[in-house]
């Protein structure tokens, strides 16, 4: 669970690992490699013909056990821009409803010879389980409350694009810290790259022991936002109110909602982020979400480039010198 020991790093042209299960396993150098590669991928996304042959002849299966619009679309576009053949398996049409176990479902899909499996699953550790039973590379597209590594990578890409660096920035993450895989991956990534990370939410939604991940925790939103370079809002789900974590959405907004007035405490060049989907008037006011500091749609755009980078690097990347350009 410790941060990986620093070691002499040979400039890598691929991720020398089978899977992307979480940010926890990545070294800072690997993270930077993904971000650098994503820059090249972003350039592709801005061309007239947004397609390169890097993954031609490879099949990527998007195995989604949870509803997802943004992440699934983003992966599919990324795969298509790299010329992969893609296949989506959604929970409604899957055999899970027939009582098949995740392991059996995965083995059956693997028997058809995919090059890679992108997995979204409601149970923490599902991607780890699959990586133990599948030879195909697994990309974790969100497992339970655990990690959502490509979200953290695209967030880091967006921050670096706007700020030129990550080290030394004050990043305030505000919202439901208990049920958020986006939070965990972002905390791991941002602390590995040297950011000053503050997390803020009602005490009922702060997991016990979170500060051991190297963050400062507070329930005073003004303290978190004070002097922040980046303010990242996390989605509040309606069922959390029903679970008794806070009294009402209205009260949540009055105490934790990001308003233009609250944002004044941040640095004048602050950026406001949100992994989506946003709840206007719950965790974020519309004028902030749509305002001049918001980079929410940039995050979505950068998601495609970042996922292209991950797919490319896990598939062997520059190791076999297949041209991106």
């Amino acid at each position: 669970m410790d941060a990986p020991a620093a070691q002499a790093v040979v400039p890598a042209t691929s991720l020398r690992r089978k899977d992307l299960l979480g940010i926890a396993e990545l070294t800072p150098e690997e993270i930077v490699l993904v971000l650098d590669t994503a820059e090249a991928m972003k350039e592709i996304s801005q061309r007239q013909i947004k397609k390169v042959p890097a993954l031609r002849g490879r099949t990527v299966v998007n195995l989604f056990f949870e509803p997802s619009t943004r992440t699934r679309t983003s992966f599919e576009i990324a795969e298509k821009r790299l010329s992969a053949d893609t296949l989506g398996v959604a929970i409604a049409s899957s055999s899970v409803v027939k009582g098949e176990s995740l392991v059996d479902t995965a083995r059956n899909i693997e028997a058809m010879g995919p090059s890679m499996i992108v997995l979204r699953h409601p149970a923490s550790g599902a991607a780890h389980l699959l990586s133990r039973v599948c030879k195909s590379p697994i990309i974790n597209a969100g497992d339970g409350l655990h990690e959502h590594p490509t979200q953290a990578l695209l967030d880091a890409f967006t921050i670096r694009e706007r700020k030129g660096r990550i080290k030394g920035l004050k990043v305030a993450i505000v919202g439901d810290l208990l049920h958020s895989r986006v939070l965990r991956s972002n905390v791991l990534l941002l602390t590995k790259l040297g950011a000053d990370v503050w997390v803020c939410g009602p005490p009922t939604l702060i997991p016990l022991g979170l500060e051991q991940l190297g963050v400062k925790t507070t329930s005073r939103v003004d303290e978190a936002v004070e002097g922040a370079d980046v303010v990242m809002m996390l989605r509040i789900q309606l069922e959390r109110m029903e679970g008794g974590f806070f009294p009402s959405l209205r009260e949540y907004f009055s105490v934790f909602g990001m308003t233009a007035a609250r944002l004044k405490r941040a640095r004048p060049d602050v950026i406001v982020m949100h992994p989506g989907p946003i709840n206007r008037g719950v965790e974020i006011a519309s004028d902030v979400a749509d305002g001049p500091f918001s980079v929410i749609l940039d995050q979505v755009a950068n998601g495609v480039a970042t996922r292209m980078a991950v797919l490319y690097l896990l598939a062997g990347g520059g190791a076999d010198n297949e041209a991106v350009a």
């Binding site: 923490s124 409350l145 016990l208």
Partner: peptide, 12 residues
């Protein structure tokens, strides 16, 4: 419930 469950995303 503690730091390990928090980092693994498991309910405590």
């Amino acid at each position: 419930e503690g730091p390990v469950a928090a980092s693994l995303g498991l309910k405590g």
